[in-house]
Design a binder for these strands. Sequence first.
DNA 1: AATTAGCAGTCTCACCGTTAGAGTGCTAAC
DNA 2: GTTAGCACTCTAACGGTGAGACTGCTAATT
Lengths: 346, 346
Amino acid sequence: MLSSRKQKILRAVVDEYIKEATPISSGEIKSKYFDDISAATIRAELSTLEDMGFLVQPHTSSGRIPSHLAYRFYVDNFLLDRPLGVEEIAAIDKSFKNKFTKVEEIVKTAAKVISDVTNYTSVIVLKNINKVVIKEIKIVGLDGESALVIIITDSGIIRDKVISVNASDESFITDAVKLVNKIFAGRTVGEIKSSGADSRLDAEINAFKELLNGVMNILIAYIDEPGSIITEGQSKMLEYPDTSIEMARNFFSLIDNKKSVAELICDDATDIEFSLKIGKSETGGIDKCAVVSAKYSINGKQIGHAGVIGPERMDYSKVVSVLSYVGDTINSILASSAQDDTEDDR
Amino acid sequence: MLSSRKQKILRAVVDEYIKEATPISSGEIKSKYFDDISAATIRAELSTLEDMGFLVQPHTSSGRIPSHLAYRFYVDNFLLDRPLGVEEIAAIDKSFKNKFTKVEEIVKTAAKVISDVTNYTSVIVLKNINKVVIKEIKIVGLDGESALVIIITDSGIIRDKVISVNASDESFITDAVKLVNKIFAGRTVGEIKSSGADSRLDAEINAFKELLNGVMNILIAYIDEPGSIITEGQSKMLEYPDTSIEMARNFFSLIDNKKSVAELICDDATDIEFSLKIGKSETGGIDKCAVVSAKYSINGKQIGHAGVIGPERMDYSKVVSVLSYVGDTINSILASSAQDDTEDDR
DNA sequence: AATTAGCAGTCTCACCGTTAGAGTGCTAAC
DNA sequence: GTTAGCACTCTAACGGTGAGACTGCTAATT
């Protein structure tokens, strides 16, 4: 275990480095953090902290910079739930004051505000959950050649998409709606995909085969999608003076690959609410970067993950506070409208 | 006017520089482009081309690199309609083989394929045209508290959005639809915005005031939006080895500002189909970058602009070919479905 | 045993000078 | 008008040097 003085010094190095992005010397720490001990003593401590793997010296006569171990220790031990400032809370609340109904809108807003308030790139990954229950399917004929299919579930509209049909007359659509709801309503999307349409209805189905296939395809596409990924503020990473062109390249080539972004943000390994990945090995190859992500849920049902990607020297406390406040806000918006639903399945 | 030999030399410098991104020497040009004249002669020509402002020497003893004037001359004189390769055509055709109905989907696909095939960042700006005529408005009640409003115009669905209503019973919606269509159908969005709802209907309107306002707001929001801007392949810019961190910063800070991107891509000043902006002064501040953009229209009606942003040393011919092929493809997809519409208003 | 002042040692950074090489501009000859 | 040849210029790379920033060590101090 680290002596409390070592901890204080380690914390000082990380705090200063996060602020300055330059190696920190013993003298600097002495003048800003300690009145009672000398720079020499701090030097001795720094030296052992380096031996323990927490600090790194770019070269013999420079100050120390934190290793990922140091950041790790920092977030594990010093991460305080620093309350957000009034302007930050105001900014977040303001973004959410509109009424939303489509999940995508809320998520987009959340991604934007997270990025704006933290000044880092934000990512939200929305799970397409098998377990979502279809409440009702509406079909609106458009022009005799195509129709808009609206799929309403217990968590709102999950999809509305145009399919092509040969709708001869008005009643065709009305009948189709009845049939489609008879088949799909009340079941979960997962169920439908695995079991297919109910075979006992074959006779009825034949008449509406084309339309039914269209709806089926929408549902299957929904499940098969990796989930929607929303990224905001990609350019934020470039605003930090110590971002090199290589870092930028690594960062953007990862960001452009939706699959790896999703993997990075969706950390289901642990049960804890927040996941912090620091450094090359933990972030899937972006050196000097870190990822903070949180599980988001509504009424206890997990709906996705939200996260922030930024430089290793990141304001972790702020990011965690923002992620958690935005998560609470979303929850309170959506929970109210879904309260009358089924019981929690925790 | 430039002698044909000067033109050949200028073209050689630009071609080589686009390939190599390094200053081009007289010897290089001699060996790759000329058998009949000596390097010394080429040197003399290079020197006068520099005096004329077409070439720049990074330092006295280096080769020449093109100035924007050179690129400008190059695109004005040497830009040939190089036909696309089979794989490129195949890639584009493949992306468009699905059936689309929402304009956004097509545009997203187009942006993606343009970026993929050219390897530059692509931008599409879609105009929200006042002149679009509302064919029909459909309203689908969802849960007694909210309803989905679908606005269908002569160019397809332009918007579907959830609004909140207090729909007491089924017939309320049915009546509302009748009223809404009575008021809005057949008029253009621009008209509606400027004139508001028809005041003679005031009595009828009162009952549906809330709902009507909701629809009105959707239409107004549509007009007031600067038009949707879709950007794809932002990271492509970083893939070029001569992209510096400053270039990247300039580039991304511009890209993040939707308004200036739109201004850059939407060049209505000239009547010509393609617009090429090269260098800092023409591109709104991104040094060493160029923008190629094209007007896109359907059935002769202009619907927006598509463009590519990349390094000044860009494969202009390829970009122009791709933009024009994609434009034709979109046109042929959408024109067919809208053929039965009103006559062209050119 | 921990702390500290003092000092030597080490490394970077910014200069400078040098050299090799690349490429030009000029000149005189064709 | 063209060209060969050469002097000239500039860069990039390398090594050396001195100032400055910190450290690590040691010996004295508490």
